[in-house]
Structure formats: structure tokens, C-alpha cells
Write a protein that binds this DNA or RNA. Structure first.
Lengths: 230, 230
DNA sequence: ATTACTACTAAACGAGTAC
DNA sequence: TGTACTCGTTTAGTAGTAA
């Protein structure tokens, strides 16, 4: 990621847009720009060169100023920023939350559930991966983690429908796509009738997490959970 | 304006918000933050200190990370950014446009119009200043300026209603608040039945512009025109 | 584990100036 | 007027490390 400096550029782009370069051509001199942004004329000039190089603006230098128009790529950048803010401000829940817990060995119930074809098929369809036949159990310990885990219940989730077979009924499972230990994409799953309390979460992934991450009982694992749009 | 550096902070704030610090508390370590933003742990730490100092975030340092919540001031900053983008993207016309033209002496018609009580009263009411009894005429010369002047017709304006007296009828006047030569607040006014063509604009202000700006016929004057919301 | 200080390096900035 | 180069200065960023 070299987005670090790009932010200065995005700010510049926003200012140019406010000066009328959004979807039309604006005449802006480097000195005028400098005054508006409280930077030097030289820096303003440099920024314009860089924005042009990025393909974010189109520039036409005339004897008394530059004719500037934001290009498609620049418009896309501004819209990206807009939509991330929109999501943030208009939602009641955050785009992502992070949990941490310690690995422990469960009763193998997770594996039993995942092995059911009905669940498996839906997981492939809705989450985009074939789950490894087993779940990773995490025990949450801090107040923060438990509180976050409870908040999660109120957020929209990907729902895997329940079913009934000859022996018994299987309930609805709510899934949240997640990134485990900053490395592996999987999901946090919560059965409506949980066997554990709010201080426990179960994780599924396309791989055997204990092996892939080299983790054992008691190890701390971080899970970044992505909430759903609507 | 010292907004230059603040932009880095705003970016950081947005990222924290996306990590769940918006309207709730998120646990974020400086190292995690550093990885997400492709900066060093030390820089992340420094940014958090600065954000706290700005009053944009509330921080609670625990042995395994910082509990971060965006404060009211931080929320305001994000909303400001959001609304400026919203205006930009959801409007069909830009927030402001800039024109340049050369001063010339008109026929004194402007002064005649402005002197009418009916117009004057509305200008005070709707533009917030008592107009100096006279207009500054600008002759536009470049294609860019003339094109911009014509686009302006399509933008919403502050409308000063016409009237009729014993002698004749006075038409509707459309006004656009403007900043003249980066210094004086006034307005660009356009009568529906203009005496001049599209290459001429008339400016009004609370003061005698020629004197205040020290300008004479032939001098170039820049006018930044602010378009109206709806 | 964390956070954040100090000392150093890299990058951004702006004054002077050419075109 | 304009823009944009060089180059010295300032500021931001990082490595090492202490707490």
C-alpha cells in the first residue's frame, strides 16, 4: 500500500472539485490554488503535476492559468471516498469489528454440523468457500470482547437456513465473513441455539486453521469480522 | 488555514471509524493500525497521540491495545467531509466557478437600476448588504470565461423580483453571491433582458469597488461565484 | 504484550529563479 | 502574468529501545 501520500492528492482533488473542476473545466492558477490551500505556489504546481501523472486530472496550461478537469479516475476516487463515508455515517453498525480470544478444544459439535450437506452447500454458495470439517473455538475473556460479541447479534449476517432430517431439526446459522489472524479468510458462525454462552465464538474456514496458523489450545487469535451491507 | 496536516489526521480518523471506533469503542493496537495503514508502529502511535490532543478521539491504553472511541469533534469532522462530498457528487453543478474579465465603463444603467428602492430593499434582504449605487462592468474575453458565463444561466440563483412603476416595467434580476478579487464579498447580477451580450457581467458590492480595489478601466478582475444549494 | 521516547533518515516543502 | 526547475530547510517517518 502506497496510499499514504495519495491522501494528500485526494484532498487536493476534493479542493479542485469544489473549485468547479468536477464534471466541467475550471481555470485555476497554481498561485490561486496555493492561497486557497495555504501551501506554496511551488507545492501546488507539484501536486497538479502529480495528479496529472496519476491520471486523476486533465490539464491544459494556458498563459493565464491551468484549465483543469477531473478525469474519470479522479471521479472514481472521490466516489470511493464518498461511499466509504456514506456507509459509515448512514449505518448504525460499523463496517468491521475485531475480536480476540483463546483457542480451546470443543466437543466436536462444530464438525458434526459442518459435515451436514445441507449446511455445507449453502456455505459454499453464500460464503464462497468449502468449509474445513471442523470449527475453531475461541474463548473471549475481556469485557471489550464479550461486549463486542453481543453487539454482533444485532448486526445483519449471512443466514444459512436450517433443515430437518429423520433424526432431528437443525437451526438457522448466522455467518459473518472474517479475517483470522490477519491472514486467512473464513467466517464467524453462530447457531441460534448456542451450546456455549456469549463468551465463546466458533470460526470456520476453507482450511484447517490450527495447522495453517500453527496454533494450539490457549493461544490468542484475532478475528476481524466484516458486517453486512443492509 | 492549517488544514494541510489535519488531512492526514482525517484519514487516520476515517480508518479508525472503519475499524469500528465510530459511535462505539474499538480495540486497536498501534501495531495493527500500522499494518493496516502501511506505516510504522511509531507513526501510528504518534498519530493517536495527536488525534487525542485534537480532541477527536478518546483513548484508553490497556496492556494489550488501546480502546479507541471517536469523540463528538471527530464525528463532526467526518460529517463535514461527508457533506462536502455529498454536495459535490449529488449536485449537477459545481459549488463555485471563477470568472475573469476586464473592467470597462458602462452607460450608467447599473446605477439606475440599483437606485430603485424596490430592487435595493430585496438585495439587502436576500444578499445581506446594501449595494453601492453602481455596478462594475467586466468584459470577458477568453472562451473559457464566456462558456462559464453561459453555464451560469442554468444554475440556481437568488432571484430579485421585478416590478412596475408609472414609467416602465423592471424585470427579474438573478444574483449570484461572489468574492471579487479574493477580497470583497458582493454579487454577480444578471438582468433577464441584458443590455450586453454573454461576454459581459455586472458586479454589485456594498462598497465602491473601483476605489476599494484600486482598479481602472482595462484592469483584470477575478470573480469567484458561489452557486446556490437547491 | 503493549506504548512512545530519542536519534536519525527520508520526504515534503518553499525560496529563488528561469522560462 | 503564468509554470516549474534546483536546492537548502523544514517536517514527517522510522529504527532502536526503554518502560
Amino acid at each position: 500500500m502506497t496510499e499514504k501520500q495519495q491522501w494528500q492528492h485526494l484532498y487536493m482533488l476534493l479542493k479542485l472539485a469544489e473549485m468547479g473542476a468536477y464534471k466541467r473545466t475550471a481555470k485555476v492558477s497554481t498561485e490561486y490554488l496555493a492561497k486557497k490551500l495555504a501551501i506554496s505556489q511551488q507545492t501546488a504546481s507539484r501536486y497538479l503535476i502529480e495528479l496529472e501523472r496519476l491520471g486523476w486530472i486533465q490539464r491544459n496550461i494556458t498563459p493565464d492559468g491551468s484549465l483543469i478537469k477531473i478525469e474519470d479516475q479522479g471521479i472514481i476516487e472521490l466516489k470511493k471516498l464518498y461511499s466509504s463515508l456514506k456507509i459509515l455515517i448512514e449505518r448504525t453498525y460499523p463496517p468491521s469489528v475485531t475480536l480476540e480470544g483463546n483457542v480451546f478444544t470443543g466437543l466436536g459439535e462444530g464438525a458434526y454440523y459442518i459435515s451436514k450437506e445441507h449446511y455445507k452447500k449453502q456455505i459454499i454458495e453464500k460464503l464462497g468457500f468449502e468449509p474445513y470439517p471442523g470449527t475453531l473455538n475461541l474463548k473471549l475473556s475481556t469485557d471489550y470482547d464479550i461486549k463486542t460479541r453481543m453487539e454482533l447479534e444485532a448486526y445483519p449476517a449471512i443466514e444459512v437456513k436450517g433443515f430437518q432430517n429423520a433424526e432431528r431439526a437443525f437451526g438457522l446459522v448466522r455467518c459473518y465473513p472474517a479475517l483470522i489472524d490477519n491472514k486467512i479468510k473464513g467466517a464467524l458462525v453462530t447457531a441460534l441455539r448456542s451450546h456455549y454462552d456469549a463468551s465463546v465464538v466458533e470460526i470456520i474456514a476453507p482450511v484447517f486453521l490450527r495447522k495453517q496458523l500453527g496454533i494450539k489450545d490457549g493461544n490468542k487469535v484475532k478475528v476481524e469480522i466484516y458486517t453486512q451491507q443492509a
